[in-house]
Nucleic acid binder design. Sequence first.
DNA 1: TCTTGACTTCAAGTCGGCTTGAACCACCAG
DNA 2: CTGGTGGTTCAAGCCGACTTGAAGTCAAGA
Lengths: 141, 141
Amino acid sequence: MDPVPIGEAARLLKINTSALRYYEEIGLVRPAARVGGRRTYGRAELRRLAFVQMAQELGFSLEVIAEVLDQPGGRWHEAIDAQIARLEVLIEQARRAQDFLVHARECTTANPVQECTTLAHVLDRRVDGLTLDEIAKEHHP
Amino acid sequence: MDPVPIGEAARLLKINTSALRYYEEIGLVRPAARVGGRRTYGRAELRRLAFVQMAQELGFSLEVIAEVLDQPGGRWHEAIDAQIARLEVLIEQARRAQDFLVHARECTTANPVQECTTLAHVLDRRVDGLTLDEIAKEHHP
DNA sequence: TCTTGACTTCAAGTCGGCTTGAACCACCAG
DNA sequence: CTGGTGGTTCAAGCCGACTTGAAGTCAAGA
């Protein structure tokens, strides 16, 4: 089952063949070999591709992925730590966003942005230069 | 303090004037009036802009923001519910991603993608067509 | 032999959310 | 009345991550 052509690799990974060629173009994943000019991917390459996909879902850019793949060891840990931190911020923000949205959903006025006094107040604080986080803290200090 | 020129509005909202013109171009936020051909923004417009910014941070696209701003009432609730749901998924994914990364950080091999048997196994399952979530559930059913 | 289908290359297009640049206009202080 | 600052328009550029299209190659099957 080892060396598969590009179409099969694409099917396995649920990705477009054009994406595979693109990855090669930017030096991210090279096929194992060419057979009659055609790309073939082996187990190692499929793993590498699977890793690329997962890392993408975990929020890494292709640039960072290429970097950690080619400089194993140090950069690897750094990148992971950075991403863990980013995700922590993301989760925190998303939580607050949810709180805010749940509150906004309660509002019964037709055009909350102009008519809801609570929302208007928050927006005005915002115009005064406060961030969402600071406004949230103002309400739950 | 009411009608401010574009530069002042931009300063207040910590945004570029070019972004304000862009918002106008796509029909998202119009200035209150023109004074000698120049845009002026009043309180209502500043609130609208503040709302746009917050909504963006909460993960809404400009297209959706325009939609809820112009169709107050029904669409508003729908959009919020949808976004709350999206955020829930996002938080869940981010948490799993963190777990995965924390685990990956433990790995001491130089090139985990090819050498770490645990990771290789996960990647192979992936090549077989499983999603990150399904693999995660496989480990904690 | 001819056709299909999967592949190849290279250039150009797409999307969202702006930014940048060039050329021109309006207002106010000195 | 002149210079500086901060406006104006319009078109084009940028970013990442691809996709699309045109034109050509190659092996297998009817």
